[in-house]
């Protein structure tokens, strides 16, 4: 049984096909990377999976249950956690409170009280390395720290699947290495599936996931083992045609290595 299955999902914004007939299957505990140029429809796909938008066509199946039209707040307790492209922790709450909110309304839901949630929060704060910031207001942290708060908060929901939008955007090489290592640790330790969306940083992809999905103009046009995908001429075409000089360089470095 697959954990998540998308069947011919289409999402339009007016005349724009943001997600075009996407089908995708993901097994429990699997870690995949989604890459693709800006505007490819990656964030929209995440929004459809997490219930921020409903698709016009197609189905979203989570653990054999059709959740296509289930409100977002009812998906979280089923085991769907996500982070946002721009980190959105609750700024006026402390790091600990942020993470505790994840525990309170996630898969444990009614079985966990406030004090237990706060205790559980500490565990995930340690996991992402935010101990020194535990009592700080999340709004006062750096962008990278905010991203960590979001990850800890999503993990405290005890999800079966974690969707990470722009897992490494705006990070320096040191942070990227830390993040790759962290995601692999999370996958092993928490036994959850992760879909990490990585826009341009191909260098990270190779070390992170065994499977890569490339999105382009709303469609998943390549899906397969990392090494194959990174050397696929169509992928190189998309990236060489893409706007970022850096992505070309990253891709080329990857190919030669």
């Amino acid at each position: 049984m697959s954990l998540l299955r998308l069947e011919n999902v289409t999402k339009r914004f007016g005349g724009l096909l943001a997600v075009n007939n996407v089908s995708l299957e993901l097994a429990s505990g699997e870690l995949i990377a989604i890459v693709g140029p800006n505007g490819a429809g990656k964030t929209t796909l995440f929004n459809v999976i997490s219930g921020v938008f409903f698709p016009e066509e197609g189905k979203v199946i989570f653990e054999d249950r059709d959740i296509t039209r289930l409100p977002a707040y009812r998906r979280a307790p089923l085991g769907l956690g996500r982070t946002f492209q721009i980190p959105r922790p609750f700024g006026s709450a402390t790091v600990r409170e942020n993470v505790a909110i994840g525990a309170m309304f996630g898969t444990l839901g009614s079985r966990i009280n406030v004090d237990e949630s706060l205790e559980m929060a500490d565990r995930y704060i340690d996991l992402v390395g935010l101990q020194p910031h535990r009592e700080k207001l999340a709004g006062n942290l750096t962008p990278v720290e905010k991203k960590m708060v979001e990850i800890a908060r999503a993990l405290a929901m005890k999800p079966k699947l974690l969707l990470m939008d722009e897992a490494m955007a705006g990070m320096n090489p040191k942070d990227i290495d830390y993040m790759v290592d962290l995601l692999i640790r999370i996958k092993e330790k928490e036994k959850i599936a992760i879909v990490a969306m990585v826009e341009h940083i191909m260098r990270a992809v190779a070390g992170l996931a065994k499977r890569v999905v490339v999105m382009h103009q709303g469609a998943t046009f390549v899906d397969g083992p990392t090494a194959d995908v990174l050397s696929d001429p169509r992928v190189i075409e998309v990236y060489l045609g893409g706007p970022s000089e850096k992505s070309k360089k990253d891709l080329v470095t990857n190919q030669t290595s």
């Binding site: 997490s50 219930g51 921020v52 409100p71 977002a72 707040y73 009812r74 998906r75 979280a76 307790p77 769907l80 956690g81 996500r82 946002f84 959105r88 922790p89 609750f90 700024g91 006026s92 709450a93 409170e97 909110i101 994840g102 309304f105 996630g106 839901g109 908060r153 929901m157």
Partner: peptide
């Protein structure tokens, strides 16, 4: 607190 700060984030966290 979650609703006041960010409704969309609150929703995907499981807050009704």
């Amino acid at each position: 607190t979650a609703v006041k700060e960010d409704e969309d984030a609150a929703k995907v966290m499981g807050v009704n």
